[in-house]
Each structure stands twice: as structure tokens, then as C-alpha cells.
């Protein structure tokens, strides 16, 4: 898993900062079957995402299995300055987690 799990791009447009995050995750629904064995592939999906700016939570997301594979998330918030850090982290239903930081540009 050398691949980066979260890629973030944060840009300011006037007062508003737009954050775009792309995560790498299989997002298995638990409904799909393995075509060779016919066995169900167990669910494996991101449940919680937390986005923080200066230690304050700007967004907390709860996801179900209906979010697409390699999820994308974008949101906007105010009150940031250029050069601030934005942190995005996730936890999935198997207890795995990842986090990444990016500077607002």
C-alpha cells in the first residue's frame, strides 16, 4: 500500500476555501459476489471522515456502502487563510484508518 490513501487539494477563492479530497478505498458493499466461488465479498467501506482546520472540525461525514469506490468529497468553508493546513482523516468498518494534510493555496 505504497499508494497515497488520500489526496487533498485546497484552494481559496475570495473568502471561501474549497477543499477537494480523493481517497483510495475499495468501498465494498457486502452485496457483491465473487464470480469464481460465488461467495459474498465482505463489506469494506469508509464510515467516518473528519476534516479539520486548526484543530476545529469543519466537516464530519458518515458514509454508507452507497458511496462509490475511490471516494471523492468536496466542501467549502470560510475563515481560513492561505498557508493554513487542512487535515482529512477516515476510519473504515474494518478498523483501518488514514489521514493526510494539505496546505491551503
Amino acid at each position: 500500500m505504497a499508494k497515497k490513501k488520500i489526496r487533498i487539494r485546497a484552494k481559496m477563492k475570495g473568502e471561501v476555501t474549497e477543499v477537494k479530497a480523493l481517497m483510495s478505498h475499495p468501498m465494498e458493499t457486502g452485496l457483491r459476489k465473487n464470480k469464481k466461488t460465488g461467495e459474498k465479498i465482505p463489506a469494506h467501506f469508509i464510515q467516518d471522515i473528519t476534516c479539520e482546520h486548526k484543530g476545529a472540525r469543519v466537516l464530519v461525514a458518515h458514509w454508507g456502502v452507497a458511496i462509490s469506490k475511490n471516494p471523492y468529497l468536496a466542501f467549502k468553508f470560510t475563515g481560513a487563510a492561505k498557508g493554513d493546513t487542512i487535515k482529512v482523516s477516515w476510519n473504515d468498518n474494518k478498523g483501518e484508518s488514514a489521514s493526510a494534510e494539505a496546505k491551503i493555496g
Binding site: 468536496a74 467549502k76 470560510t78
Partner: peptide, 17 residues
């Protein structure tokens, strides 16, 4: 599909797939 809790400075805008 998903729910989002927004902070006080977060705008009413969400984009996902």
C-alpha cells in the same frame, strides 16, 4: 447514502459520488 455534519464556518455545499 451519506450524512454530513457541518461546522459553523462550513458552507451548505457537498459534492461526492
Amino acid at each position: 447514502a451519506s450524512s454530513y455534519d457541518l461546522g459553523p464556518n462550513t458552507e451548505g455545499f457537498i459534492s461526492c459520488r
